[in-house]
């Protein structure tokens, strides 16, 4: 039962990832990513990471994906999303990806790491403790980073606003 559900979720994940990789339509690719992200959130639950799974759903599915979809809508990049350049084309990409995948499998098999039977626990409180004790500095740095990002994104997009404001002023001046 448990394994069955896991396999289903894993299959959905792989499917979503493959759709992302191979879909011709960028919207389909984004939706495939959405599928994969949701499925990965399910995998987190298998790994006793309830808080991370919820975060994944909230931030990725609720935030990032909406952002990406808006980005797709704001830019008219519907068709022909694959590169025409043969060097950038599917064959070398496949080759590299295959090499990378084989290397990954090789590493997994030869890692020789000791694994234990994982235990299921409630994690939220402990994560909170970790964030505010051991990882307080990265935590704060991340908040600073986010502030900077907000400001930066605002500045970057402000130009357009300025242009939009100036244009009618000139027209009024002519009148």
């Amino acid at each position: 039962m448990k394994d069955g559900i896991f396999l289903c979720i894993a299959a959905v994940t792989v499917f979503g990832a493959l759709v992302t990789a191979f879909s011709r339509s960028i919207i389909n690719a984004a939706l495939g990513l959405l599928l994969a992200l949701v499925a990965i959130a399910g995998l987190y639950i298998f790994l006793s990471a309830d808080f991370v799974a919820v975060s994944q759903i909230l931030i990725y599915v609720g935030g990032v994906m909406v952002l990406l979809l808006f980005g797709i809508m704001l830019t008219s990049g519907g068709d022909n999303i694959f590169s025409n350049n043969p060097i950038m084309g599917a064959v070398p990409a496949t080759l590299i990806t295959t090499i990378f995948g084989l290397l990954g499998i090789y590493v997994v098999n030869t890692s020789g790491l000791t694994f234990y039977q994982g235990a299921y626990r409630a994690t939220t409180r402990d994560i909170g403790h970790f964030l505010l004790r051991e990882y307080i500095l990265p935590f704060e740095l991340v908040s600073v980073l986010i502030v900077v990002l907000i400001v930066g994104a605002g500045v970057m997009l402000r130009k357009e606003l300025v242009i939009v404001r100036q244009a009618p002023q000139k027209k009024e001046g002519k009148k």
């Binding site: 590169s83 950038m88 070398p92 590299i96 290397l103 090789y106 590493v107």
Partner: peptide
């Protein structure tokens, strides 16, 4: 100037480092 080319470099370099280390 082609971004894809840079991505190739990144991945290729990563593979090389990977190979060197592992």
């Amino acid at each position: 100037g082609s971004m894809n080319r840079y991505l190739y470099y990144i991945v290729g370099s990563f593979i090389m480092i990977y190979v060197f280390i592992r």
